[in-house]
Design a protein around this nucleic acid. Structure first.
Lengths: 247, 247
DNA sequence: CGCCCACTTGAACGTGTTCAAACGTCGTGG
DNA sequence: CCACGACGTTTGAACACGTTCAAGTGGGCG
C-alpha cells in the first residue's frame, strides 16, 4: 500500500548515514504522517508563518525562496523526494522564507509535538534529524561559494552537478539522465543571474558537449569535464560512500 | 576568576532564546572546557579534518571560509564571542570548510563525547544547541540572498547591519559604535567582490553619512537609512525580542 | 627610520544586465 | 482539426556594474 512506500522514503533517508537499529526504524515507520497532494507552483508555508508541523517530500520538487524589496526572488534551495525542507521549524518558531512547490508534490506532514516526543524517546534519532539540517546548511555554504566566487559558467555547472548527484543518491537517475523539471527562469533565480544569461550559459554547456538539457530532464554527457569545469567536490553533500561510488 | 566569565558566555547565549532551568544551566556551567588562546590569522581546523571537539569563541573574531580552485577565497561566516562555529562537527564528521581566526581569539574547546553525554542527559539542551546551528543556517540563507539578489551597495550595508546587531546582542556595542576588526579585503571575500570595489562601496556609504568606519571599528550614524538601503530585516537572526528592542 | 599592511585612486576593460522581440511547443476551446 | 493563448526558450544590441591592473598614500610597529 501507498503508506508503506512513503514512510520508507524517510527511513531510507535517515538510515543512509548512520545505521539505525530496528526499534528506531520502527519508531520512524510509526510516525503519524498526513499525506497531502499539492499542485505545482503553490506556497506550502510562507515567511512569517509559525508552522506546527514539518513535511517530508515524497514525490515532486519544491523550493525555498525569499523575496527582496527590489522585487527580485532568490531561490535558496531545491528540494526533492526524501528531503525535509522545513525541519528547522521544529526549533525556529518563525519561518524566515517561503516554501513552495515547483511541480505537483506529494508530501507527508508530521506534527511538531510528535517529533519532539520521538526525539525525547530516541535521542539518537534526534541526532539523525539534526544531521539532516546540518547537511542543508552545508549546501547553503556551497551555494554561497558559488554565488560569491564562481563565474556564471562554473556556477551553473556546479548546480547541475549537485542536482544530478542528489537525485542519483535517492535513486532518481537512470544512467546519466535525470528528470529535472526546473525552468531556466527558476535556475536563474537560484544562480543569482538573469534568465537571459542563464540561457546563454546553458547553451555554452551544451555546445561544449557536457550536457544535454531540456525543460524536464538533464543528461550528463561528460561527467568528468562537467565536474572539472564546476570545480565540484561532492563531500559537502555528506552522502554515504555508496551513494557516490560508481560516478 | 576567568573561567566563570568564559562559561557564562555560553550559558548566556543558550539561555537567550529558551529559558533554561537551573539544572540545565548548571550542566552547561560544568562542561569541561579547555580554554586556548589562538593568535590572529591562524587556522583552527581545516577542510577535511575530523575534529573531536568543538569550540566556543570567548573573545575575538573568527571566520569560516572555503578556497575555490581558481584561487579565490569565499568567507562563509563571521564569528564573534558566544558563537560555536564548528558545532556542526558533532554530527558531520568531516569538515567541509576552514575555520580560522581574524584577530587573536580566546576559545573554549569541548570534546564531542562530553557534548553527546550532555545531550543524552538533557534532551532539551540538545534542542537548544540544535537551534544554534539552525540560526547559523538562517544566516547562510540571508547571505545567499545578498550575494544573489542585492547589488554591492545594499549587500555591503546589509552585512554591516548584521554585524552591528549581532555584536549588540552579545553586549559588544557601546551606543552606535562597535569594534569591527575586519579588513576591507576580508569584507570583499565575504561579499563576493573585489577589495577595490568594496573600498568604493564603503566610501559611498560614508559619503551618504550612514556610517563612519575605520579598520577597527564601525559607527552607525544613521541606522534607519542604513537599514532601508540594506533592506535589512533582523528576523532571520532569530534573536530574542530584548536583543532587538531599542534599535 | 624603514618596512609592511591596509586603504585609496585612476582608467580601461569585460562579464553579465537590460530591454525588446520572436520562436516553438503544449494544452485548451471553438 | 485548427486557432489561440500561455509559457518557456532563444536571439540581438546597447549598456552598466563591478573587475582588473597598476600605482600611490598613510599609519602602525619593529
Amino acid at each position: 500500500m501507498a503508506l508503506e512506500g512513503t514512510e520508507n522514503v524517510l527511513v531510507r533517508r535517515l538510515a543512509s548515514h548512520d545505521a539505525l537499529d530496528e526499534a528506531e526504524r520502527e519508531a520512524v515507520r510509526q510516525l503519524p504522517m498526513t499525506v497531502r497532494q499539492i499542485p505545482a507552483k503553490r506556497d506550502v508555508v510562507r515567511e512569517g508563518d509559525r508552522p506546527s508541523e514539518c513535511c517530508v517530500i515524497l514525490e515532486g520538487f519544491a523550493i525555498r525562496s525569499k523575496i527582496v524589496s527590489s522585487g527580485g526572488r532568490q531561490i535558496l534551495a531545491f528540494h526533492l523526494p526524501g528531503d525535509i525542507p522545513d525541519l528547522q521549524s521544529l526549533h525556529l518558531t518563525q519561518l524566515d522564507h517561503d516554501l513552495s512547490t515547483l511541480t505537483a508534490v506529494r508530501a507527508g506532514f508530521i506534527r511538531h509535538e510528535v517529533m519532539h516526543v520521538l526525539h525525547a524517546r530516541h535521542p539518537r534519532l534526534a541526532g539523525v534529524f539534526w544531521r539532516e539540517t546540518l547537511i542543508d546548511a552545508a549546501i547553503f555554504r556551497e551555494w554561497i561559494v558559488g554565488l560569491g566566487a564562481r563565474d556564471a559558467l562554473s556556477r551553473t555547472a556546479h548546480l547541475l552537478c549537485e542536482m544530478f548527484v542528489r537525485l542519483r543518491a535517492v535513486g532518481l537517475a537512470r544512467g546519466n539522465s535525470v528528470d529535472l523539471p526546473i525552468t531556466q527562469a527558476d535556475l536563474a533565480d537560484a544562480l543569482g543571474m538573469t534568465a537571459v544569461h542563464t540561457n546563454r550559459t546553458i547553451q555554452e554547456l551544451r555546445s561544449r558537449k557536457l550536457i544535454a538539457i531540456g525543460s524536464r530532464n538533464l543528461i550528463v554527457s561528460d561527467w568528468k569535464e562537467l565536474v572539472a569545469l564546476a570545480d565540484f567536490d561532492p563531500s559537502y553533500l555528506h552522502l554515504s560512500p555508496e551513494a557516490l561510488e560508481p560516478l
